[in-house]
Nucleic acid binder design. Structure first.
Ligand SMILES: [Mn+2]
Ligand SMILES: [Mn+2]
Ligand SMILES: [Mn+2]
Ligand SMILES: [Mn+2]
Lengths: 219, 219
DNA sequence: CATAATATTTAGACTAATCTAACATTTTTA
DNA sequence: TAAAAATGTTAGATTAGTCTAAATATTATG
């Protein structure tokens, strides 16, 4: 009944990949987990025997309900722990991912549900990623990348797409955090860079790629 | 530099055994970890190569400073997590050990030190076991088993020796908790059973073995 | 102190998770 | 559509951690 850390990490990776495309490939998993495709093939056979995935040689794989449930649960735990670390332990949003990679494997439904309750049944983690409820259901989020917002419209930062520490630290440096109100003043036609202001404060320039990686609450 | 969960569990077990006797034996470790002596021998060789223990074939082993530091650190983490679970997450003292067995392996000095701070740099876990500080130093505790206390003297419960869930639940049932004031009214000469009262309340009978497993603050 | 009992180690095997190298299949492209 | 490229699988190794059975060393005892 119990899965190893390794199996949990595979199922989490497969779940994330299947958000884009139901049918997941061996190489995608290998890339995401930074291991060799041959290793993945072996594990896929094991997961298929356990009925956690549907797998056909050379054809790719998809999660079964059972496999999805485990993948989603790991994601739920990861995100709840991240929020706990930020809200209760005063870590910065760029410090919590590595620790949550470990904490996500702690086995205790009671603990994770109390954590959920203690945090007020939150809908999103410190990076704006949605947290599924105890039944594995995600609330619907209506966020769009900042670069799709029209000039003059005030939008509220809800999260980020890129999750790297360097990106998060860059946002800290230029003073953009979740909940901030952003107004786009102008978009440079040449390179799509944005001139914006944060919370009606002084203006900041961000590149197109930064704008694409900031999520705001959609209208 | 990083040790596996398994190595950490060995070092924790060895540390606990060496509290009784500096020189630890293969069989003691096997018994404590519930694995075969042959398995232990293999691991001892590995720990010796890593200079975490001093080991001589057939002669037993002892911890090096390096090994002791790791063992103590795991114990520190275990006990801080247990206290966190009781104080912050409202678990009962008989529910926390299994979860702490997992949490003790989370690698983050920052996290454990913040946990320590959040809990007010506690000196003991929910079962009264001492918590070493971040330098691996234990405060001195002056506790004695209840059966060594003289009748009529009021003593304060500081912890337990036996840590099993059944024992902890038994204490809950008869209404004995850490911090309670206990007065011994009489000790039965035949079987050393104790007639006591808790917080000046109504009288309770406990067997000698129970009295031996309750620690009170020594005079 | 010789032998019996106990403790410990060695030898050989197994499983999970990983790798590299070689082979097979599918997809792309000229 | 045939060859080339990309993708995926198999075969054979390796490491960590475990086991059982057999061998060896230490300790206890008649
Ligand atoms: Mn994360
Ligand atoms: Mn993980
Ligand atoms: Mn414990
Ligand atoms: Mn442990």
């Amino acid at each position: 009944m119990k899965n190893s850390f390794t199996e949990e990490n595979y199922l989490k990776a497969i779940y994330k990949l299947s958000e884009r495309d139901e049918l997941v490939t061996t190489t995608d998993i290998a890339t995401m987990l930074d291991i060799r495709a041959a290793t993945v093939t072996d594990m896929l056979k094991k997961l298929a025997v356990k009925k956690l995935i549907r797998y056909e040689r050379y054809k790719g794989l998809s999660l079964t309900e059972k496999g999805r449930a485990i993948g989603v649960k790991i994601i739920r735990k990861h995100r709840l722990w991240e929020l706990f670390l930020v809200q209760k332990m005063k870590f910065r949003w760029d410090e919590v991912h590595e620790i949550a990679e470990q904490l996500e494997h702690i086995q205790s439904d009671e603990l994770i549900n109390r954590l959920d309750e203690m945090l007020g049944f939150p809908k999103a983690d410190p990076h704006g990623d949605p947290i599924p409820d105890k039944n594995g259901v995600f609330g619907k989020t209506r966020t769009i990348p900042l670069n799709q917002v029209k000039p003059k419209v005030v939008s509220v930062v809800a999260g980020v797409i890129e999750n790297s520490n360097t990106f998060l630290q860059y946002l800290d440096k230029i003073g953009i955090a979740i909940g901030d109100k952003i107004t786009i003043h102008a978009i440079e036609a040449y390179d799509q860079s944005h001139r914006i202001s944060v919370n009606q404060g002084k203006e900041v320039f961000i590149s197109e790629s930064v704008a694409k990686n900031i999520l705001v609450v959609g209208k």
